[in-house]
Amino acid sequence: MTLALRALLLLSCLGPAAQAAEPIRPLPREPEYDHPRAALGMRLFFDTHLSSDGQIACASCHIPAMGGAEPRPVSVGVEGRRGNTNAPTVYNAYYNFRQFWNGRAADLREQAAGPLHNPKEMNMEESQLEARVNGNEYRADFAAIYGERRYGLSEVTDAIAEFEKALITPNARFDRWLRGEIELSEGERRGYRLFKHLGCVTCHNGINIGGNSYQYLGAVVPMEWQEGMADRYAVTGDPKDKNRFKVPSLRNITLTAPYLHDGSQATLREVLETMALHNIGFTLEPHEVDALLAFLRTLTGETPAILRGE
């Protein structure tokens, strides 16, 4: 090898240029967040008294043990009221470019306000919320962070959003492979290659393997559209936005069944086949499904440290 070639190779190993080729980036090992605020946010996140009937907490639908999502097709709120949407995972939600399936919230704070007020979810009036957080249980914690004043939605969503910044699931095998720490199995590697080859990666890319663009569900083979579903159309009223959703993250995907916005796909194999048919027009061979599943399993990270009491 000539000296110039060797230098070129060396250069190509240095810096982000080497990794820039991969359209997926690993999560940071340690999330950065304000600990006291996140601790307060965590209390609020698990507090059922932030709902009108005292039964529903954020954690009721974003269940830590279920990958930060829920095992039923659609959420059930106060008084057993059923919604029409499957709660997306709260894990790594910080890295989504918008929140909710249709991206109607710009960030986590805005998102947190949604379920609190939604009559089918926590159904809290502003005054009820204030009465709760200004009560004896919370006053001292709020005062330590926000100073002496009357606390309301602004402080509550701020604390919850800070907690959610801590809900990062690092060190997935795939991330570790990306960082060059481990080798993936041949099957997993084949799955990832297929993931790119089939064009899944065109939409599921970036740090969250999704969550960074709006795309059509049924891009190639259209799917049935129903009035009232939480798509972009519900936000913009533009007919072109029918069945257009924020692409969900594929991180921890094995934990967050059922799938799709309405929880209509019970298993990962099921949703893979649906997505292959409608979004790339293919029927996958069983070995292709196995390979993709092998790859998807490498995307499961560690439970966030803050939930492990660390």
Binding site: T202, S213, Y214, Q215, I280
Partner: peptide, 17 residues
């Protein structure tokens, strides 16, 4: 740009398939 990312994905996938 958000609109573009949607179209881009459609065009790229189909033109490669």
């Amino acid at each position: 740009i958000l609109r573009f990312t949607t179209y881009n994905a459609l065009i790229k996938n189909s033109s490669s398939h």
